[in-house]
Simulated scan of single mutants.
Amino acid sequence: MPETPVRRATPIRSPALLLALLILPFAVLPSGAQPAAPAAPAPPERLDTCPGLVSGTSPRVRPAAFLPAALAPDQARITYVGHSTFLIESPRLVRVATDYNDYVKPPVLPDIATMNRAHSTHYTLSPDPGIRFVLHGWRDDGKPAGHDVSYQDVHVRSVATNIRDWAGGTTRHGNSIFVIEVGTLCIAHLGHLHHTLTPQQIAEIGRVDVVLVPVDGSYTLDLEGMVEVIAALKAPLMIPMHYFSRYTLDRFLERVKADYEVEFSDTPSVVLAKTTLPQKPKFLVLPGR
């Protein structure tokens, strides 16, 4: 059975409310067994795949209802909407919403929506028709999603992983890690990750600057497995997501605080550039749940 859905977030009607997003908690259900990661041949040398392309086209005019502060060409804005949904904005005001669904939505319509299949709180089959690119992290034929989309100054690609099914088995390629290249940054959204990464998958992801990490330790990968994934990706900054209570979040942070600095933000948004990334890897906790 799927994760218990929450009520829709109230639409944001003024910029002042953006920094006060409140997401209702999700019910915790028992998790199934973890599937083994698929076997893979020896990978090629890990590629430095960032930064992505920068478009020469002019930025589009945006509605007056949502006009955030302008970003420098090397910056990206990341806003935690809740659960596993983030709004990522580029210098040309291209907007990407991760794990876009019917329950937890960003305050503005995204240009690009990524989704994953594990639960209905990670996808919708009825996305707003105004979304330019709807990227499912799975395919109905069981093959990898294989997305590689460029739009203005944003590049989004996907790396397939497996998920558990409700019978305790494995659905191949049911989840995608989406790598979003914005400004000079590579941002990896791990989605509903259920297993540690193979060397081939790590090579396909490449070097990343920011990792959006599910930290519940039950529906997704267990705590020790997620710590292994974080260590393998070697990103300077990690932002927790997909936790069901402060207890769930604190349990994960307690596990990692011996090896990583932990910082708590007062606001759900942060503006980042490669030059402002921490010298020592750390976790940045944005408000939301």
Rank of each mutant, 00 (worst) to 15 (best):
I12V: 15
A69K: 13
R46E: 13
H155S: 10
T161A: 08
P129K: 07
E45M: 09
Q201V: 00
L71V: 09
D141A: 05
M115P: 06
H173D: 03
I177L: 15
R207E: 14
P35H: 02
R207F: 11
I131T: 04
R246V: 07
V94E: 01
G191F: 00
V149A: 03
P236L: 10
H192W: 04
D102P: 09
L197S: 04
T114N: 05
I12E: 10
R60G: 09
H192P: 00
L109V: 15
E89V: 05
H194I: 01
D209V: 12
I202H: 07
D140Q: 02
W166T: 04
P287V: 12
T184L: 11
Y80P: 12
H83L: 09
R255N: 04
A97Y: 07
A231W: 01
E263I: 14
S158N: 06
T114Q: 05
L22R: 14
T79V: 14
V262G: 04
V94Q: 00
R207M: 06
L212V: 08
H83D: 09
A273E: 14
A167D: 08
A33G: 05
N162P: 00
V285I: 14
Y123E: 06
V179Y: 08
S31G: 15
L21Y: 10
L71A: 07
G56Y: 02
L67H: 12
D153P: 14
A145H: 07
F252P: 06
T276A: 12
R289P: 02
D99C: 06
F133H: 12
S265R: 14
A64V: 05
P127L: 04
F26L: 03
R157E: 03
K234Q: 15
E181V: 02
R139S: 09
K234P: 04
L272I: 08
P268G: 04
P11V: 01
L185T: 02
V159S: 00
T276F: 10
P106V: 13
W166G: 02
R62H: 08
V28K: 09
V208G: 11
H83T: 05
T161R: 12
A39S: 13
F66R: 09
D141P: 02
L125R: 08
A16C: 06
L284T: 02
I187G: 07
L212G: 07
A113Y: 11
R172I: 04
D259A: 12
P91D: 04
S218M: 09
R46A: 13
L286T: 05
I78Y: 04
A72W: 02
P35Q: 07
A39N: 05
K282T: 01
K282N: 06
G217E: 15
L93V: 03
G52D: 08
T276I: 12
S265N: 10
Y260N: 01
M238C: 14
D259I: 02
V154N: 09
R289Y: 07
T85Q: 05
D259G: 09
G82M: 06
T196N: 01
A40W: 03
P278N: 13
A258L: 10
R251A: 14
G183M: 02
R92E: 08
I88H: 05
R117V: 00
G169K: 06
E228P: 00
T184W: 11
L272T: 11
I12D: 15
H122Y: 07
G174H: 13
R8S: 13
K257E: 14
A69W: 03
D74F: 11
F264L: 15
P43F: 05
L237S: 04
N116Y: 01
D99L: 09
K105L: 14
V159F: 00
L284C: 01
T49M: 12
A232Q: 15
